[in-house]
């Protein structure tokens, strides 16, 4: 039988990363969806905690008439929220782990994977925080530097070259500088997003050896490892994320469209009837949003697992064995 699929290199092309994740998702849909349902449950629980804390706080205030009751209520709310977010982050990582184990031919059941990751629950919470913190830092620093650079450039044009602000040359060059700065900002942000794209994976599947035995890496080590693995292939990762994102546009539109339309209707119209319809659309839209997230989240987690798997093969040659 002739074969056209001669594969001399054994690594995944950009398109095949995305395709593989779809195949993997389709063939394990029940298991991944089950975890996704559980994760969404924890998301809803965060809302529930707010509601319960509000009710209890209100009740206590009505009885005691003292603002001091806010202290235990806020503490309780904080603990509840932290716990639920940690559980949510862990369930996301469970999907990554399930997919990765599938890729290395050592599949695990949902129960086993969850059991493995329970001790790392707080690690995942810390990791999620750190990544968002780092991304925000990058965004703040980059925007500050770029805004200052554009201002200096503008000042140089107006005062240095003594061009009036109405001069077409001045207008065009300043406009170009602003557009350039904006593009640069997006590039920097996307680049760092890509660096930390697989940050969950090392914590979810790796064991670091040290003299006393084995332990999962810390959240910081996991994030650093993601950057170390991806730093040579940032462009590939960005392309993979772009393709996956574009492919998800239909589902995203379905999920976010109605609530967006509802928002526009509420803010643009003064007519009460229109606003009421807008409100219904918005609430229904939030539900749809959650529903679409339910389906899309596993897809992204699987992509992360595949990117990580492929990168480890590329960088560490784990599959090069007979």
């Amino acid at each position: 039988m002739a074969k056209n699929n001669y594969d001399p290199v054994g690594t995944l092309s950009i398109g095949n990363v995305v395709t593989t994740s779809i195949t993997l998702y389709k063939s394990n849909f029940k298991r991944y969806f089950q975890v996704s349902l559980r994760a969404t449950g924890w998301l809803l629980a965060i809302l529930l905690v707010i509601l319960v804390a509000g009710l209890i706080g209100g009740g206590l205030y009505a009885v005691t008439n003292s603002w001091l009751v806010a202290i235990p209520v806020v503490i309780g709310w904080l603990i509840g929220t932290l716990y639920c977010s940690a559980k949510y982050a862990t369930d996301r990582a469970v999907i990554c782990r399930l997919a990765y184990q599938e890729l290395i031919d050592a599949p695990e059941t949902v129960a086993v994977a969850t059991q493995q990751l329970i001790p790392r629950t707080w690690g995942f919470l810390r990791l999620t925080w750190l990544v968002s913190l780092y991304i925000s830092l990058v965004a703040v620093i980059a925007s500050l530097v770029l805004v200052i650079a554009v201002l200096i450039f503008t000042a140089a044009i107006i005062y240095g070259l003594k061009l009036p602000i109405e001069n077409p040359v001045a207008i065009i060059s300043i406009t170009l500088a602003v557009i350039g700065a904006f593009l640069l900002f997006i590039t920097i942000l996307v680049r760092y997003y890509a660096y930390w794209f697989v940050a969950e994976l090392p914590l979810a599947v790796e064991q670091t050896r040290f003299s006393g035995g084995e332990a999962p890496p810390t959240a910081n080590a996991s994030i650093a490892r993601s950057k170390q693995l991806i730093s040579t292939v940032v462009g590939r990762v960005i392309l993979i994320v772009t393709i996956a994102f574009l492919m998800m546009i239909p589902i995203n539109t379905l999920g976010n469209g109605p609530s967006f339309v509802g928002q526009v209707m509420i803010s643009a119209s003064t007519d009460l009837g229109t606003q009421a319809i807008g409100g219904i659309l918005m609430i229904g839209g939030l539900f749809l949003n959650l529903l679409s997230e339910l389906f899309i989240m596993p897809f992204w987690q699987i992509i992360k697992a595949i990117v990580y798997y492929d990168l480890r093969n590329r960088r560490e040659g784990g599959d090069l064995t007979i």
Partner: peptide, 28 residues
């Protein structure tokens, strides 16, 4: 994890192909 398909040419030669997949098709 990539889908394959077998096809038979008019000369009855059996060929196996790897399908392009959604990822590659979207990329293209």
């Amino acid at each position: 994890f990539l889908n394959r398909v077998k096809s038979r040419t008019p000369e009855s030669v059996e060929l196996e192909f790897v399908l392009a997949g959604l990822g590659n098709r979207t990329y293209a």
